[in-house]
Amino acid sequence: MELSDWFKGFEKGLARLSTEQRKAFFAECGSNCVKCGTLQVYKDLYDSASGDIDLFFHNADKLPGVKCETIEKGAAYYLYFTECTCALHKKGYVSTPLLCECSRQSILYVLHTLWNNKTFSVTLCGSILQGEQNCKIKIEVKEQV
């Protein structure tokens, strides 16, 4: 059996999970994935912005493959990715848009790691795996904790 055959069952299994079950599953997957490298990129951005969230997103806009847009200073942002960077997708193993919950959860993990005194809402507005040009994610700062 090829590894790609195994992932066909993985995709079918994901489809059978409830939304809440997928959130729980991908919270673990997303945090683990981001800890393997990307988290440090975001920590460096956070440090260079001295924790200023507006400056953080302004600087993130300069990263390759990333575009950021401020909707409302200190409160809402759009984060765009110009390509799917998920290794499972890039290697051709998984193509279901359900995988995008992993990205959403990884962004939540990064935001809560950097600003543990804030609460965030992260909404996937569209993704490459859904057939869109970019992955578009809306980030809202919900409240101070």
Results as ranks from 00 to 15, higher is better:
6 W>C: 09
145 V>M: 09
54 D>H: 07
50 S>F: 04
6 W>P: 02
46 Y>W: 11
130 Q>G: 01
106 S>K: 02
92 G>K: 02
130 Q>H: 01
137 I>S: 04
66 V>A: 12
18 S>V: 12
17 L>G: 05
119 T>G: 03
24 A>G: 07
63 L>I: 11
34 V>D: 11
123 T>N: 01
48 S>T: 14
61 D>E: 14
8 K>H: 07
33 C>G: 15
82 T>V: 08
121 S>C: 03
42 Y>I: 12
59 N>T: 11
28 E>C: 10
83 E>V: 01
71 I>H: 08
86 C>L: 07
18 S>H: 06
144 Q>T: 09
115 W>Q: 09
34 V>I: 15
23 K>V: 15
22 R>G: 15
71 I>Y: 10
45 L>R: 06
97 P>K: 08
122 V>T: 01
76 A>H: 00
68 C>M: 09
57 F>R: 09
13 G>E: 15
36 C>K: 13
35 K>M: 15
97 P>I: 09
56 F>Q: 12
126 G>N: 01
125 C>H: 00
6 W>G: 08
17 L>F: 11
138 K>M: 04
26 F>A: 06
18 S>G: 14
121 S>K: 01
86 C>M: 08
93 Y>H: 07
136 K>G: 02
43 K>W: 02
11 E>N: 10
24 A>I: 09
46 Y>C: 13
97 P>R: 05
15 A>W: 13
131 G>Y: 00
94 V>S: 02
39 L>P: 14
26 F>S: 06
34 V>S: 11
121 S>T: 03
99 L>A: 00
78 Y>E: 08
